[in-house]
Design a protein around this nucleic acid. Structure first.
Lengths: 229, 229
DNA sequence: TCAAAAGTGTTGCTGGTACACCCATGT
DNA sequence: ACATGGGTGTACCAGCAACACTTTTGA
């Protein structure tokens, strides 16, 4: 009890909704709490903001500490400040969402190490605090933003097939897309690099691999190009 | 100095970017600071969050206290938490933006009472703290959101002409729109109520007045309708 | 040879854009 | 009568949606 202030202060935390794509599911990463309140319940990874770090830094640090994840796409979502969202005292949280590529196996291993687990977004246990609400908003934001910003690529490995991107959009937008129209559209944007490689270890015709061309995307954007699915 | 905690805590504030439309300009409301730091500089209205109020409540309270504004459209923008954004100590701010209807003359009067003033967004003095950056983000958000959510009406009086809406969009989007196409589009959405009234006190043919039909908009939205200019 | 997914074009329709003149009203 | 903005329709074009079959590959 060494830090005193003239007026009472809320505690400040960050929480992260981490999305990953695993086979046919959009998943999120949860941590099982080992302390009250909500002991044993699942919660979003997160923790207190330190005085010497920015909000973004706090979110990245907590992610790394609690889940081992690094180099993820991270974006601020919203700040939640209901008076009684934490039963102990007033806590305001700045929520973030992150997109990670699950097919990178090191990521999987890193998260296995702790009391963290992946859950399909449409099969989530009830969460601690107001984390259900945070998750809901993050999911909505992802569904919205994925359509007009090329953030979907963050959920895929660096080299991917057209089928994989289409599948990603189908899972996130929760509706089927026409194969030919989808290919026509995404290729016509000119933001994919067609590689001289095909996928391996598949029991059928191997599909061509592509890469997202970030430089070209930025260049086009400056010229008024607008990504949209 | 009566409130002590085990770990140091950042102070938490809210700040509001208040937009209004006045003739040919999109304007924002600023407060002149009468205390250091940045004494005499212009800043966004805002202040400390109290423990017994939510973030939204804090923003509404500060707006009311500092500018007299009530019943405004308010939406959370982003939280700013750079370590040294306030030279005194660590302060994290949750920024909001508000849209007000300036033609309501009581609003004008209320804001005249204090050291507050309206500035055209493209002629803003340099602001205290990181408020330039907050303003920039709010402006961007407004430009983006006005196109796919019917928030523009918040800047107009309850009864308005088609010319006024079009002008609003031209000012915010900063480009001219075709009169016939604009009218066709906005009327075809079916979210305007055509009144049996026309504007008064104009030195030419009076234009018909319309009202935004919130109920109908909500109904249509539930049926999958998507507003877009 | 079978199973599985890759890859590929055309047509119709919808909705956006471009564009100019007459009308109503107040001064 | 004139100045000012109100109000209106059409033609073209681009881009979206719907739709099915052949090819490649590994098992």
């Amino acid at each position: 009890m060494k830090y005193s202030y003239e007026y009472p202060r809320a505690a400040l935390t960050v929480d992260c909704v981490v999305f990953g794509l695993y086979e046919d599911d959009l998943q999120i990463l949860l941590i099982q709490r080992d302390l009250p309140p909500f002991e044993g319940d699942w919660a979003l990874p997160g923790g207190f903001v330190r005085l010497e770090e920015t909000l973004d830094e706090a979110a990245l640090r907590e992610l790394s500490e609690e889940t081992g994840l690094k180099n993820v796409y991270l974006e601020q979502l919203y700040s939640f400040g209901t008076v009684n969202r934490d039963p102990r005292e007033r806590v305001v949280t700045v929520a973030y969402y992150a997109l990670v590529n699950l097919s990178d196996h090191r990521v999987q291993a890193a998260t296995d190490a702790r009391n963290a687990a992946w859950f399909a977004v449409d099969d989530i246990p009830s969460l601690a605090f107001d984390h259900d609400q945070i998750l809901e908003m993050a999911h909505e934001r992802l569904r919205g933003k994925v359509r007009y910003q090329p953030i979907g690529f963050e959920l895929l490995p660096p080299k991917f097939t057209l089928r994989q991107i289409q599948h990603l959009y189908e899972v996130i937008l929760d509706r089927p897309l026409d194969k030919r129209n989808f290919r026509k559209k995404i290729l016509s944007m000119g933001i994919l690099i067609e590689l001289d490689e095909v996928e391996t270890d598949v029991a059928h015709r191997a599909a061509r691999l592509y890469q997202f061309d970030r430089r070209k995307y930025k260049r086009l954007t400056k010229q008024g190009f607008h990504f949209e699915i």
